[in-house]
Design a protein around this nucleic acid. Structure first.
Lengths: 337, 337
DNA sequence: GTTCGTCAATAGAACGTTCTAGTAGTGTGA
DNA sequence: TCACACTACTAGAACGTTCTATTGACGAAC
């Protein structure tokens, strides 16, 4: 026989019923220590491994959490890693479904639905709120790294405003007075970061010095913004700039350095995400770190709580970020204005 | 009733047997056009969706291909995208399992095994050949983007040597005579790329000019290599450099530009991968593109052929790369040596 | 007018588990 | 002695499909 052994095979070999073998394998109560040992020995000998398909069919619950992620996003990679460990800790498995240039979110979700996941965790989804709400009517849905205004959808996200406040505080502490912000346009979180930036400036009495430059998510967006930064006449020119995210910030750094502007001597730069990019020794970017571990733990905990019907606390959980000071920030050059 | 509708529900509603509904849903022969229509209408009305767990249990085949990928690697993202479309075309589904810093390859594979995949596609696995061979004894295993010397393991990879030959040919055509190579150490493909580099130089009668610098996979490795490149005395100094991959090449570019070496005027640079990085307008890197689409199609086709027992052709399939000329290569500056 | 073939449809047994309801067997207290 | 509780175990029905017969019914061919 070359087919894999089943409960029945083990049962025959051990001289007991299949039900008892099932009890032993599940470590459920109802078997004596001696038989338990014997059954386990036989199972081991035959190389028995339970068939997950049959388990899934019979059990009411699949203990499976579906995850939709973008295959491009470096930060999603960090989040997926955290989700794996968080899920394992509470006895759940993960079913991954990727969004690619040819495979949109709805397709990714559809794939998970037919895998019979019990809950869905969506990383930075683009889908309209109505679609997410429709999904949430069917099963628990936790959205990570994006704000969603609908009472059925749980949200776990970074406190973007606080992140930019920390960045501005750090720069002001170093002595900067003219601080610009390169924004992320319509990207998730961009509005909150703008708000954090202007709020912090006002708090320091520097509201009049606020300077917002249109940016975006990519290196190219940053490069464009940096070029318009360089065109500013000297008295208005900022000595520091906060940037929507790390990718965009590296574009800024490239253009500044290419134009002979020394970082951080002539210009301080702060990013957002603490991506692998920022940690590279030749980039060495001061940045606002998102707490991926906490976010993923909260996301899994919330999904499980929904399934158990033990939901407590706010629908939207906001995780504080943390400023990581590296080599792209320093006091402004006193010899200049 | 709030549980999801089953075959039986549809059958009752349509006044037929469950078997017939099954026939209709599977689009199998054995039902008249009129009943077919009626059953489909009822199924649609009830919102019936087949239970994949029951299908999986009953069907001998799962039509599921397991994929192990690194959540960090940008290129793996491209490959996963290609795999989705390739698998769909031949009627297979994908089960994704990620390798993260806390979750090693063996864990990722174990997860897939209990999902009852029929075949495994591993993207650039680190595992020893013996482990891969053991796996291949159980089920078809296709390794992508890494060479494996074992007759049971199928391999799909880029012709790394040819890629470097194209890069060198391009540089020689532009007029370069002193071309260096920053290598990838023990990384998969590095040895073949070295071989392609030296072979091409010899073919052009430039073998004596070969200059190999230790590099690596990351931006930091490239930055280090670039610094040692700058230290070379002028008569030996190359006018062009081929680099193990794009990430490493961006490190090289950064250091060169920071040191006042204009690219491509003073130094031409060629990368490898054609990653998103290379395509950025401010990087604009000439590079050797790996053909992700062809590779994924071959990988899926080979896995399916193994399952169908219709394997033909070589165990190792080598895909030719393609040189993408962008802005980091130009004729050498005649005013210099 | 029997026989054969084809077509549409069905009954009922799988697939490998888990779960419910039960049956012996043993000890305990009155 | 009986009632009762407890433990160790089992029979058999689910779960929702697919698959292998099998059954009628209706023509066509002999």
């Amino acid at each position: 026989m070359d087919r894999r052994p089943t409960l029945a095979d083990v049962a025959v070999q051990a001289g007991v019923s299949t039900a008892l073998v099932s009890i032993v394998m599940r470590e459920a109560p109802g078997a004596s220590a001696t038989t338990r040992e014997r059954v386990l020995a036989v199972a081991d000998e035959l190389g028995y491994r339970p068939d997950i398909r049959a388990q899934l069919l019979r059990r009411s619950r699949s203990r499976l959490i579906g995850v939709v992620f973008g295959v491009q996003h470096a930060f999603h990679g960090d989040l997926v890693g955290g989700l794996y460990t968080a899920a394992e800790r509470v006895g759940y498995e993960l079913a991954l479904s990727a969004v690619t240039p040819e495979r949109d979110e709805q397709r990714a979700v559809a794939g998970l639905l037919q895998d019979r996941c019990e809950a869905l965790v969506l990383l930075g989804p683009q889908a309209p709120t109505a679609y997410l709400a429709g999904l949430a009517a069917r099963m628990p849905v936790v959205v990570v790294a994006r704000a969603v205004r609908h009472r059925a959808v749980d949200v776990v996200r970074t406190d973007d405003a606080a992140g930019l406040e920390q960045a501005v505080d750090h720069l002001v502490e170093l002595g900067h007075r003219r601080i610009a912000h390169i924004d992320g346009g319509r990207a998730p979180g961009a509005a909150e970061r703008r708000r954090g930036y202007t709020g912090a400036l006002q708090r320091h009495g520097l509201g009049r010095n606020a300077l917002m430059l249109p940016g975006g998510l990519t290196e190219d967006d940053g490069a464009d913004a940096a070029r318009s930064l360089l065109e500013l006449s000297d008295p208005r020119a900022p000595t520091a700039v906060t940037v929507f995210n790390d990718r965009c910030a590296t574009g800024v750094l490239d253009v500044l350095r290419g134009a002979g502007v020394a970082v951080p001597r002539d210009m301080s730069v702060v990013g957002f995400d603490d991506s692998r990019l920022a940690r590279l020794s030749h980039v060495d970017l001061t940045t606002v770190a998102q707490d991926a571990t906490t976010m993923t733990e909260l996301a899994v905990a919330r999904a499980v709580a929904r399934l158990d019907g033990t939901v407590v606390g706010e629908r939207e959980q906001v995780v504080p970020p943390r400023l990581v000071v590296r080599g792209t920030t320093a006091p402004p050059d006193r010899s200049r204005g």
